[in-house]
Nucleic acid binder design. Sequence first.
DNA 1: CCTGTATAAAACCATTAGGTTAATTAACCT
DNA 2: AGGTTAATTAACCTAATGGTTTTATACAGG
Lengths: 121, 121
Amino acid sequence: MPDHLSITFAALADPTRRAILSRLLLGECSVGDLAEPFEMSMPAVSKHLRVLERAGLIAQRRDAQWRRCRIQAGPLKEVSDWTERYREVWEARLDRLDEYVQQLAAKEKKTHGRKQRGKQR
Amino acid sequence: MPDHLSITFAALADPTRRAILSRLLLGECSVGDLAEPFEMSMPAVSKHLRVLERAGLIAQRRDAQWRRCRIQAGPLKEVSDWTERYREVWEARLDRLDEYVQQLAAKEKKTHGRKQRGKQR
DNA sequence: CCTGTATAAAACCATTAGGTTAATTAACCT
DNA sequence: AGGTTAATTAACCTAATGGTTTTATACAGG
């Protein structure tokens, strides 16, 4: 599972980390600032940051005693590109539902009357 | 972490599961068909399917002794919507790099000559 | 009814993830 | 030098993940 997309998706699969990214939309800030909204120890936030960093979603630079973090959205473009392949599926939802219902109906005809025949154990 | 987006992202953070979704773009098929390309036991694939199902990314229906799976892309729309918020960041990458470099330069000026002053321990 | 096929459930195992507290490093400021 | 602030590392815990093998269930068809 060390492919890039998997690492990115895994990094995004946590609300704390997504909140951190969201916060970074407002601009660069320190680890302390990032940690402040969460009821969680600093080391915990630090770990989240390392996950985001390994995924290439943030970068840090040293600024005196602070670590300033900024967002790096490159991997999110990969997510977007991957997701696009499925756009027509969700946009066609109702059509597909129709299709599915028709398919069900066809099946129904094939199995004619014996539908609920199973023993209910 | 039981929010919907986290569950969806977690479900997508595995190449096997993404391959399964990709396969389902071609249309409904049985668990056995889905399992065939993978060097992995059927129960393992079954577990992946349950993860996808809990995320609402697939649905199953019974067809005689087969379980026919189909894709449900609704949650992928949520992923797409979430990701869109970051589009301008990745599209502005170069501009931001400029900005960052300028910022660095400003910083450099502020700290004038004392840059590499630190003891190297 | 029995047998084969398709799939899920159970029990188990190793690894990873997300959190904690305590200790350490790094830099600033007198 | 000493103290404070910022953040990471280390060591540890628990629960979840991803896989296995073995057992059970549901259906089809002679």
